[in-house]
Design a protein around this nucleic acid. Structure first.
Length: 572
RNA sequence: GCCCCUGUAGUUAAAUGGAUAUAACGGAGGAUUCCUAAUCCUCAAUUCUGGGUUCAAUUCCCGGCAGGGGCACCA
């Protein structure tokens, strides 16, 4: 795939007689680019040859020297302690990278990992009757990025919004509304009023545990098709979804399927039949369960049906999974939910495996850490929450102020402020590795210096600015053999990493790899910007060559941001 | 009690088992007759602990400690 790596491997194989795969495995990148572009550690080889690694490296460098000297791609080989370091011919390397980008255009980096395959991604999935908080951004932002990255790699993607519109806490909202609700007020301000009722319910239930029974009763009536409850349910669901869709519109997110848990509550009988017919369901303490413990572990069983005869989170998710497989015949299914649900998914996957479903191995839980605020967990129930839309508004307002100060003549300032403000919030989220718990700090999200979304966007805008000043169209065939400065090489090397980063990011369902890459690329680009005056001087050939590099970097930054769900303004 | 995740500069984070552990924020100082200073440059500071595997461990394994989460009628 990388002809420079291939050539080094061939040369090493020829001189050492080592296996090609072994060499490929061993080949690494030196920690400092002054040492070279690729490195071969000689420790394993030293053991085989019963010589010191330093000696082996020295010998090998000498033996490789003639091959390297005759090479069109390699510039030098040298031993440095126990390592053999290779340097490539910079101009040739840069030319190769730029040619790839010129040939592939906007699809640069995409390869064909997902060709002919379908992935279903369950993400966002907010709970009805709760405001869209900053914590919901985790599943929404990560899931959306996973979706876009897969689609870019050729997968057919099905984005599923599995609404939490059913279950016990919904019963609580119904009960609270029945007791204290005011139709006028809910109509005027649905989600705020409903969450207020929900919080009140949870306060009062401390003193009066019988409220729990009322909530259960409301849920039972809903399940039984009671007209009043169904009407309320429909009303609350509609209002909540409308709220969520406002957020999705701001973030530019769409789903291919939006179905609530309620939809799958109706399939309880099918799920019972599914497990019963395979002899896996059994009565226990009045409920219907499936044992999933394996070996010595004591994993709790999966509950299919409660004592009251209602469906459970488990049974609804099993129904949803069976339905999705039947409908989409997915090759991969990714659940983007927080890691509190790890056990839940383990139980489901085990139960299905016990039921003889082999495709369950294609399902994965991509968990993410919890978000806390000022050291405390965000809890809708306790009324401690940070509304996402308010954070987005603040970020946009701040951006407007910064633009007014730094670039008052900017055209379309308001539109850019939106792109940058939203980009800052989205990037701050998606830049964290999934599994880490996050302490949400507004001041950090609203700081646009350093490793942030606006930093990446700013870099892109500066490069666009160079191209505007250049005033001509970029000559994608321009000769770049005059390039080779350290700053130019660093930038090109970063660009060359992009396909590899994307491949790994999709495999691990880890968008933060792309975010880190975008930051590294932006850093390399900014150093280049500061060190190399692209348009200065009157060497037209040199300028045309550097413009190609600028254009390639700009495009790749743009693609990376797009995959993360951010806009890439051309001016800011 | 059992299970899952996480312990790295003051803070937030990086490091396919490889060379001197890398950045950013915050702090201090500096760079703009030159393509956008939301940038760049300089300075200080870090692997929780005890073992093990290995030529080599932040990384893998075992024990401990610390934090977060979960463990059938919440989702």
């Amino acid at each position: 795939m990388n002809p420079f790596v291939d050539e080094i491997i061939q040369a090493v194989v020829q001189t050492s007689g080592l296996d090609e795969m072994v060499v490929r495995e061993l080949l690494a990148v030196p920690p400092d680019d002054k040492l070279g572009d690729y490195a071969l550690p000689c420790f394993t080889l030293a053991k085989q040859l019963r010589k010191s690694p330093v000696q082996v490296a020295d010998d090998m460098a000498r033996e490789l020297a003639p091959l390297v000297a005759a090479s069109a791609r390699l510039a030098s080989v040298s031993a440095a302690g126990p390592y053999v370091n290779f340097a490539v011919r910079r101009a040739v390397f840069i030319g190769h990278v730029l040619d790839c980008i010129a040939t592939e255009g906007p699809t640069y980096g995409s390869a064909d990992q997902g060709r002919g395959q379908t992935v279903t991604i369950d993400f966002s999935s907010p709970n009805t009757a709760k405001p869209f908080s900053i914590a919901h951004l985790r599943s929404t932002g990560i899931g959306h990025a996973i979706y876009r990255i897969h689609r870019f790699l050729g997968w057919t993607c099905v984005g599923i919004n599995h609404l939490g519109d059913y279950g016990a806490n919904f019963g609580q909202v119904l009960a609270a509304y029945s007791k204290w609700g005011d139709e006028e007020r809910v109509r005027a301000n649905p989600v705020i009023e409903l969450v207020t009722l929900y919080v009140r319910f949870n306060e009062e239930v401390e003193a009066d545990p019988s409220l729990k029974d009322e909530a259960r009763e409301c849920l039972r009536r809903l399940a039984a098709g009671d007209e009043e409850m169904v009407a309320l349910w429909r009303w609350f669901s509609t209002e909540s979804l409308r709220e969520a869709e406002r957020i999705y519109a701001i973030l530019g997110i769409t789903f291919d399927e939006t179905l609530g848990e309620s939809h799958f509550a109706e399939k309880l009988d099918e799920v019972i039949e599914f497990f019963s017919s395979r002899g896996l369901a059994e009565e226990s303490e009045g409920a219907l369960i499936v044992h999933v413990a394996e070996g010595d572990d004591q994993m709790a069983p999966l509950m299919v049906r409660t004592t009251n005869g209602t469906s459970t989170y488990h049974s609804r998710d099993v129904a949803a999974l069976l339905y999705r497989h039947e409908r989409y015949a997915f090759d991969k299914m990714v659940y983007v939910t927080d890691n509190r649900q790890s056990l839940h998914f383990q139980q489901i996957f085990r139960a299905l495996r016990r039921a003889g479903i082999d495709w369950v191995d294609r399902c994965q839980h991509a968990p993410f850490g919890l978000m806390s605020f000022k050291g405390k967990a965000l809890s809708t129930r306790k009324g401690t929450t940070v509304i996402l839309e308010e954070v987005l508004d603040q970020a946009i307002t701040l951006t407007q102020q910064i633009i007014a100060e730094k670039n008052p003549d900017l055209p379309h300032a308001d539109a850019v402020a939106r792109q940058v403000g939203i980009g800052a919030v989205v990037f701050a989220d998606v830049n964290n590795r999934r599994t880490r718990d996050i302490s949400f700090a507004l001041e950090d999200v609203l700081n646009f210096d350093g490793e942030t979304g606006p930093y990446v966007q700013y870099t892109h805008a500066r490069f666009c600015s160079i191209l505007r000043k250049y005033g001509r169209s970029v000559d994608l065939t321009a000769d770049v053999s005059c390039l080779g400065d350290t700053a130019e090489m660093r930038l090109a090397r970063k660009l060359a990493e992009f396909p590899y980063v994307l491949d790994l990011s999709a495999r691990d369902s880890e968008p933060s790899y792309v975010a880190s890459f975008a930051l590294e690329l932006a850093t390399a680009a900014n150093k280049f910007y500061n060190e190399v005056p692209v348009l200065a001087g009157d060497d037209a050939l040199l300028i045309a060559a550097r413009v190609r590099l600028v254009d390639a970097a700009r495009r790749t930054l743009c693609t990376a941001m797009d995959l993360l769900g951010m806009s890439a303004p051309e001016e800011m």
